[in-house]
């Protein structure tokens, strides 16, 4: 774990200001921060950020950990779909869908977890639109390229 205490305190304060309580846990190799999010429909979700050892120089992964077994419009588990550009998904982590947020080439060390969680919040709203309409998530979320 390389995230400094000062950086963690700054990240925590920013996350709590906008999203409420943050749960931190992990071991000597990985630090995780988990926050709860509520969509406009009132549905509750949990997003887990997995910070790599090189954080903040490398971006975190963002997993939807609650509710388990999120499915697409056709009823297929998002974790089983794995990587999907149309659904803005990366390869899953066990039972958890891993969502696209920033392009690794566009990530910078001064970017914060707040921005990643806000992207997750927008992703979840798009997910619920997909669940209602069947349109892929990239109908609602633009693709990010590796160059500005």
């Amino acid at each position: 774990m390389t995230i400094s205490q000062q950086r963690a305190a700054t990240e925590n304060a920013l996350l709590e200001q906008y999203f409420g309580k943050v749960y931190w846990f992990g071991d000597h190799t990985t630090v995780c921060a988990e926050v709860g999010l509520v969509t406009n429909s009132g549905t509750q979700y949990a997003v887990r950020l997995m910070l790599p050892d090189e954080y903040p120089d490398r971006l975190p992964e963002a997993l939807i950990t609650h509710p388990r077994g999120l499915t697409n419009y056709r009823g297929r588990d998002l974790a089983d779909i794995g990587s999907s550009p149309e659904m803005h998904l990366l390869p899953s982590r066990g039972p958890y869908a891993s969502i696209c947020h920033y392009h690794p080439a566009r990530w910078a060390a001064d970017m914060t977890l707040y921005k990643v969680v806000m992207k997750a919040r927008i992703w979840l709203e798009a997910y619920e639109m997909h669940a209602r309409t069947g349109k892929p998530l990239d109908s609602y979320l633009k693709h990010m390229t590796g160059t500005p």
Binding site: C100, R106, K142
Partner: peptide, 19 residues
């Protein structure tokens, strides 16, 4: 008073796994 504009965060786009 605490509401934040998030258009800019959405408008930069979301990383697509195919890249």
């Amino acid at each position: 008073p605490d509401a934040v504009i998030v258009d800019a965060i959405a408008e930069v786009g979301f990383f697509a796994a195919r890249e």
